[in-house]
Each structure stands twice: as C-alpha cells, then as structure tokens.
Design a protein around this nucleic acid. Structure first.
Lengths: 194, 194
DNA sequence: CCTTATTTCGAACATATGTTCAACTTAAAC
DNA sequence: GTTTAAGTTGAACATATGTTCGAAATAAGG
C-alpha cells in the first residue's frame, strides 16, 4: 500500500495523485486508506516518513566510515551525504520513487514542516562538517552552497531525461555521481575566498 | 488575466491551481478562460510562453555584452545566463512568480515539451560557450554540469525559506547571486580534469 | 430606432475526488 | 454452536472542478 502510494505520489505529485489511482495500483479496496485515519495527507506524510530514518542513518554511517578512513575532505563528506541515496536507488527501485518524492517535498513550501522534521537535522550535521572544511565562508554562505548542492543532487535523480537531451545520451551513473560530488565540492570550496 | 494565472500556478502548481482561484484573483468572469479555447492547459502554456522570449533575449543580450566587454570566462558566461532572471525579478515581482513556474516546468516531465521548446535552444547556445571554456570535459559532462547549475539557480529563486532556516538569516541577494555564479563556475571548471 | 452580429457573463452540467458508513465477512470468546 | 467483537469492503455522499452554452449586454449597420 505504501509502495503504491509512493509510486503514484512520485509520478503525479500530491495534487495530481488520486486515492483511486493509489488503491488501483496497490490492488487493495478503496476504504483502506481512510480506515487508518488521516486520509490522503496522512498517507503522504507516512510515505515520506517511512524511508527518512533509514536515509539519515545511511548518511551518518557513511560519514562515520569516511572519517574513519581519513577521507573527510569536501568530496568525502559530500559523498557521504549523496552516495547513499544513489546506492539505495540501485539496490531497490522504490528508492528512486522516494527520490522524486523528496524532490517534490523540497520544492513545495507546503511541506516545509516535513522536510524540517525529517531532513534538516541530518543536514545540520553535514553543514557543521562542511563549515569546518571551508573556514573562510560565512554561515549563510555555507547554507546557500549546501542548498545548491542538494538541488543539484535532486536534479541528477529526477532530470535524467533533460540531461540526455542536452548531452550526447552517453550516461554512466557512476560517473554522473562522481561528477556531482566533485561539482559541488568545487563549488563549496570556491566559497572559501569570498 | 495572465498575471493572475501566473501567480496562482506559481504558488499552487498546475494540479493544485483552480480555474476559479485564477478568475477570483483576476476579477474576470469564469467563462473567459475557455472562451479563447484550450482551457486550463492552454492557459498554462500561454503563461509559460509569455515571458520565455523576453528571458531568452535578455540572456543572449547579456552574453553579447559580456563578450564585448572581454568578460567571457566561465563566471561571465554563467552570469549572462543567470543574472537577467534576478535582475528582472527585482524590477517586476511578477518575474518572481514566473521563476517559480519555471521551476515547476523544469521538475515535471509532463512539461518536458514546453521546456524543450522555450528553454532548450538558448540553453544550447550557452552549452556551446561553456564547452569552449572547459576543453577537457565530455559533451555529457557539460550537460550534467549545466543541469546542476540551472537547478541551483532555481533553488536560489525558490528556496529562500530553507536557506534562511539553515543559515543565519542574513541574506543579501546581490551576494547570493555572486555566490551562485561562482559556485557553478567552480563546479563546471572542476569538470576539466575529469 | 430597429435589427443584426458580437461579446460578455455566470448558472448549469458532467465528471472526478476525498471521505463516510452501513452491510458483510472473518475471527474470537464462551 | 452461538454470540460478540473486530476488521474489511465498495456503494453512496457531498463537494470540487473543468467545461459548456444560452441568455443578457453591448456594439455595429442600415
């Protein structure tokens, strides 16, 4: 049921998705969604919440691993934040739906409270790491660079089609992720001198 | 009428927006939208199309100015692409609504044909300029970096609230735009060595 | 001033959609 | 086996929404 909701919300967005689309996808009867109380909005929040903790844990574990391996430069820290999302997406395609969902949540102020609750705490941990690696930059400047980086990450997860159209179509996911990490690391490092 | 539609679509998205919301905002009667034919979807496309040409022209003019001034390095070219959007937004707040709209169009594959028609041609001009400035990178890598940059630009236009929450709230728009341009220039330049 | 054409308007329509709830099924308790 | 409780199901409801269309208002022509 949550899988079906995740898939439909990811493709159509919250307003575009229909309770009937979701139950048709899941095969379950119409009433089930409201039987647990809360209706459509509660279902959406459950779907967002379901994988949020696992994602945060994967990111923090990757950060700990990177630090233990002495790989705590900017690409190492950024990679710890970004790579788990792609690793999970490759193992389980439902994580790719979740990625689109996170893009929706990040883009719409209506869900600001959701992203503040589920994503901001981990973001602050990484923000602190990055701050230590870019000593000259202001707090504000680090936050801006982090938001730029997150949006680039979500663009890579959601805009494969446009990248293919503008490029030559020779996409290699591992190379794309390396590119993303180094792109953002270079961008953040450029904040040092400013 | 188009102003009202622009504002409502920008806040609620296509599915969230209602014909009745739009006509209430505009003060005009309910029938006007369908009288010109096409209904809601045609209205959305008109709203996207209305400012697309002006935006492209402003970007290409800024590129020509930068080249004439000998300012055709990566920050100069990227600035020519990005700064007109912010300049227009500061002069006319309706351009800020348009910016949110462009973010919606960019994020949803449903409107891929729209962005291909109105934004891709200009994008290719800048892509060619960037390619000449990052000689070592592949076509694909340039396209990826460009999409990262565009998404960062749209994030700056649409995610002021999250930037403020994660940072210290001391936002200065001119400094943010400079940061954006240098962030993306550094990220693109990092593609040279790869 | 009357007639005809054109535009403007919003009530009405058909459909879609979130939600409810009474009938039905299944399981548990005694 | 009977009764009671709990869970399941989808038809029905109220509302919302995109669209239509005939009437009213306005303009044009003679």
């Amino acid at each position: 049921m949550l899988d079906a909701a995740e898939a439909v919300f990811a493709i159509r967005g919250f307003d575009g998705a229909t309770i009937r689309d979701i139950v048709a996808e899941s095969g379950e009867p119409l009433g089930t969604i409201h039987h647990h109380g809360g209706g459509k909005e509660a279902l959406f929040q459950q779907v967002v919440a379901r994988r949020a903790e696992a994602l945060s844990e994967a990111r923090l574990a990757a950060l700990a691993r990177a630090q233990a391996a002495g790989d705590s430069d900017l690409p190492g820290v950024l990679g710890a934040f970004m790579r788990p999302f792609f690793d999970l997406s490759q193992k389980d395609p439902r994580w790719r739906h979740y990625a689109r969902l996170v893009a929706f949540v990040s883009a719409d102020d209506r869900w600001r409270a959701l992203s503040a609750r589920f994503f901001d705490p981990t973001a602050r941990v990484f923000l602190a790491e990055i701050r230590a690696l870019v000593p000259g930059a202001t707090e504000q400047s680090i936050a801006e660079g982090f938001v730029f980086s997150v949006s680039a990450m979500l663009a890579l997860l959601t805009s494969q089609e446009r990248i293919g159209t503008l490029g030559d179509g020779r996409a290699n996911e591992a190379a794309q992720i390396d590119h993303l990490v180094h792109f953002c690391a270079a961008g953040l490092a450029a904040g040092k001198a400013r």
